[in-house]
């Protein structure tokens, strides 16, 4: 029995721009639903009218609490107050590692963890609970690597896109689920309001070829890099015995750190 709170946000489809479940938040809910049964509190800060909220309920969530606030407000204090008011206090706070559609800085879980005084583990893909009140977490790293960690409860976890895919949303549970709306008074996000906003335009990819210390060399260097095949260092063994060849390959791989020494 472990009490879990899940923070859910509304995502944005990258092509159509329509509201959808935020991919990592949906994975966080999937992980929360796969934990042993306990109390699950789902929170959303924002508009209660978004159609994407029903998609979360359709995953098998009975109730979703919406802290109603206008766009451009800072939800940190409202969420913090709501989490502190939960009784008994949850032991795990799950959420996606990055929202879609807001500032998308990934700071909110860190601010909450710091204010609550809990540990935070980012980019988690799997979670198993131990009997002694701690949990084993698996973090996704670059290049498909995984790292295991142990942390004592309570803690905040953010979920990586490589976590197991969320179950699809079903129509019946989505209609039956309850959305409880609480109007909260959230302060305006002044730092965000001070930023200039304009539509995103892709920038040309930076070419870094040619010059020895990085930076781009001349146009000829860039043309060469784009058209010619790179030449290697060119160590050549002609007709060695298979064992010599194997030893050369082994030593070379060891030099590059691909094989343990």
């Amino acid at each position: 029995m472990v009490d879990v709170a899940v923070l859910l946000s509304v995502g944005r489809h990258p092509v159509s721009g329509r509201a959808r479940r935020a991919p990592t938040d949906a994975r966080a809910l999937e992980l929360a639903l796969s934990l042993p049964p306990g109390r699950r509190t789902a929170l959303h800060a924002g508009s209660p009218d978004s159609p994407a909220l029903r998609d979360y309920l359709g995953m098998g969530l009975a109730e979703l609490t919406v802290l109603a606030m206008a766009e451009g407000r800072d939800p940190t204090d409202a969420l913090l107050a709501r989490l502190r008011a939960l009784s008994p206090a949850p032991s795990i706070l799950l959420t996606g590692n990055r929202a879609e559609g807001g500032e998308d800085s990934g700071m909110l879980p860190y601010s909450l963890a710091h204010a609550l005084g809990w540990a935070i583990v980012p980019d988690v893909v799997a979670l198993t609970l131990n009997d002694d009140g701690s949990a084993e977490l698996v973090q996704a790293l670059a290049r498909g690597q995984r790292r295991a960690l142990r942390v004592a409860m309570p803690f905040v976890v953010t979920i990586h896109p490589a976590a197991p895919a969320p179950r699809p949303s079903a129509f019946g549970p989505a209609r039956r689920g309850r959305i409880t709306v609480e109007a909260v008074d959230a302060p305006e996000d002044t730092a965000l309001a001070a930023c200039a906003v304009r539509p995103w335009r892709d920038r040309p990819k930076r070419l870094t070829v040619g010059a020895p210390g990085g930076g781009s060399g001349g146009a000829l260097d860039r043309l060469r890099a784009a058209t010619e095949a790179k030449a290697g260092q060119g160590r050549l063994l002609v007709g060695p015995t298979p064992d010599e060849a194997a030893r050369a390959i082994y030593d070379c791989l060891q030099e590059q750190g691909m094989l343990p020494r």
Partner: peptide
């Protein structure tokens, strides 16, 4: 980049900032 990749937020350099990969050219010698 913000807003699910749809918007660009810009301001004067703040105190804390993190740099995305390949956003800045590395220095020469």
């Amino acid at each position: 980049r913000a807003g699910g990749g749809s918007r660009e937020l810009s301001c004067a350099p703040p105190r804390l900032l993190s740099i995305a990969a390949d956003a800045v050219a590395p220095l020469g010698p």
